[in-house]
Amino acid sequence: MDIPRHWRLRKQRYALVGEVCDNCDAKLFPPRDICPDCGEEAKTLYSFSGHGEVYSYTTVYDPPVGFEESAPYTVAIVKLDEGPLVTAQLTDLEEKEVEIGMPVEMVTRKLRSATDERGMLVYGYKFRPILNASLV
């Protein structure tokens, strides 16, 4: 059970808490402490809105161990409104044909059990089609 590895990322995982560069205002997710745009230190926490659009996507039918229960599942790169790309699963997709450019919003879901039914539950961000477009 890799408990600390998941635990230390909980803020990022549950709620897309990344960083902002104090120097050039670039928004960073995942957090990486050094701004890739200007090279300055970027350690100020920044909460992302959770809104974005599908940049690319595919479906995994042949999952790695730990993800068998949820296969087949759709994994995507999402372009967040604030700029960064993030890799995440899409969820609540039924009857909805995914396409590049489709607007999505972040939800917090179960990513998997860390080991088995006795192991710790790992929660984190996924994205779904916008529930109520008038609220965006």
Binding site: D62, P64, L111
Partner: peptide, 11 residues
């Protein structure tokens, strides 16, 4: 990236 790609079920 184990924390940000593999943990999302990416292969």
């Amino acid at each position: 990236d184990a924390d940000y790609e593999a943990e999302q079920g990416l292969t």
